[in-house]
């Protein structure tokens, strides 16, 4: 596959724009985008589970919380340095997710949603209630990586790990593994009969997705400076779903587009916090009911419509069709 095709050049342009954006925007918007990048990672990694392998997890946000708390607690209680606590946070997330994944192996569909929901609630309540260790509802202070409250370095940090996450997901989806994953989603029985080891791939994906969420959470904690069990609120999970649905569930770009555009929209409507949620959820319902592909589908159709006007028939067969039709 050629590396220098139109799409990749477009992505490169976007990246360059993102790199130079902080120059023209205020501190406030740099912060907003940093958070948007965080949610981009959460949305893209959840899409890996829900959109691509049909594993509808309702506990994704919990792994971000676990990562954040692990890293923070290691630093606060055990005096560990960043380069220990950060990988430890990611690692623990992956371990817990693999255990959960194994437990949920034979469970699918509705039961998976219920179990992951229960998992999310149990963990959230634990962080709330063991306040001696975790700080409870009040939360716990997290050491800042860059030692400063200025948003710029964190912007680049999150831009970096977001790009990392997106590239990782793209690599996986393009590889043999991605092919197997898609086959698992579309028809697990057929996939199994073709020799695809469903179990192994499902757990693998679960670990990767949760690891990415954990990574996002770890850095989130060390960027915001304060973490609390609110990270594990069901609302967070709902937001992730909203981003993915509005952006387009079965595409790689969908979650990214969804997360950033919706966060942007939410910032614009900051004053009316209920109103914006009402609008967003209504849009999600409408999309699910009438227009399943979200924004990416919209772009795709737009592209097709534009192309159809400009390009003539590509083959003699098409020409014949056009003449007859």
């Amino acid at each position: 596959m050629k590396i220098f095709n139109l799409k990749n050049i477009g992505l490169l342009v976007l990246l360059i724009v993102a790199v130079f954006l902080p120059v023209v925007i205020s501190d406030y918007w740099r912060f907003v985008l940093t958070i948007a990048f965080f949610y981009t990672i959460m949305a893209a990694s959840w899409n890996l589970l829900g959109g691509y392998t049909g594993q509808f997890s309702l506990g994704h946000h919990t792994f971000a919380m676990i990562g954040a708390y692990t890293s923070t607690l290691l630093m606060q209680k055990a005096g560990a340095p960043f380069w220990v606590s950060i990988p430890a946070g990611i690692l623990l997330t992956m371990i817990i997710s693999s255990l959960l994944g194994v437990m949920c192996l034979r469970i699918h569909g509705i039961y998976l949603a219920l179990i992951t929901w229960a998992f999310a609630e149990v963990v959230r309540n634990y962080f709330r209630l063991h306040y001696a260790f975790t700080g409870g509802d009040r939360g716990i202070d997290s050491p800042l990586i860059f030692g400063t409250m200025k948003p710029t370095p964190y912007y680049y940090l999150f831009l970096g790990i977001a790009v990392l996450a997106i590239v990782l997901i793209a690599v996986i989806m393009r590889s043999k593994i991605g092919y197997y994953l898609r086959s698992i989603r579309d028809d697990p029985i057929a996939a199994r009969s073709m020799g695809v080891d469903i179990v192994r791939y499902k757990i693998f994906v679960f670990m990767v997705a949760s690891g990415l969420a954990g990574m996002a959470g770890v850095f989130y904690g060390h960027s915001i400076g304060l973490i609390s069990p609110v990270m594990g609120d069901f609302n967070e999970m709902a937001m992730i779903i909203i981003f993915v649905v509005i952006g387009g569930m079965r595409t790689q770009a969908g979650p990214i587009v969804g997360a950033i555009s919706v966060r942007y929209l939410m910032e614009l409507l900051r004053a009316q916090s209920e109103f914006r949620i009402v609008i967003l959820t209504a849009i999600v319902i409408l999309i699910m009911r009438f227009f399943n592909g979200g924004l990416m589908e919209l772009f795709r159709r737009l592209k097709k419509w534009i192309r159809r006007d400009r390009e003539g028939p590509v083959s003699a067969y098409q020409e014949l069709e056009q003449k007859q039709g």
Partner: peptide, 26 residues
């Protein structure tokens, strides 16, 4: 009309929950 049923139901009912909650507050 709908293809991926469980997905649809979960997303729609979760969205409804948040929708109704926020309308009530509004």
């Amino acid at each position: 009309i709908i293809e991926a049923k469980m997905e649809y139901a979960t997303i729609v009912t979760i969205s409804m929950a948040i929708f109704l909650r926020n309308i009530a507050v509004a």
